[in-house]
């Protein structure tokens, strides 16, 4: 995975491990999380994004639910068509920068769906034990 990034972007000995945890379902938080994921992944960093709680619902195949704004800034994001949608940015992070998008297995169980019901950029359902092993040594961002 990392070698692929190094080939495309030149890589750097400064590449970092970045972990982003998304639990909120509001637009502003998902937007910032997606911005960090996409730019970090495109810069050669090893990015893992873990989705749980209210954040996961927007990535179920075929659903068209809009994330509600938390405040005025979320309304601004909605009004400007030039702001890349968070779903597009997460997909970019996965496609261009090999970011891992991991759904929380507990959240999937409660929602009554399987990992295959999610958008194709998503990795396998992930429990906390393997997730915590995966992110050892990472910088952590939570939203």
């Amino acid at each position: 995975m990392t070698g692929h990034i190094f080939t495309n972007f030149g890589g750097s000995v400064l590449a970092q491990k970045i972990c982003i945890i998304c639990v909120s379902g509001v637009r502003e938080k998902l937007q910032v999380a997606a911005m960090i994921a996409s730019v970090a992944a495109a810069s050669g960093d090893e990015v893992t994004v873990f989705f749980s709680m209210n954040a996961l619902q927007y990535f179920v195949k075929g659903q068209d639910r809009e994330a509600p704004p938390e405040g005025n800034f979320g309304v601004l994001i909605e009004k400007h068509s030039g702001v890349p949608p968070f779903k597009q940015l997460f997909a970019f992070a996965a496609d261009i920068g090999d970011a891992k998008l991991l759904p929380c297995s507990m959240a999937l169980d409660l929602m009554g769906i399987k990992g295959t019901d999610l958008d194709p950029e998503f990795g396998p359902p992930t429990g906390l034990t393997s997730f915590l092993s995966d992110i050892s040594g990472s910088q952590l961002f939570t939203f």
Partner: peptide, 9 residues
């Protein structure tokens, strides 16, 4: 007319 990180993407 696109906003960060649109131009970079």
């Amino acid at each position: 007319n696109t906003f960060c990180p649109g131009p970079l993407m």
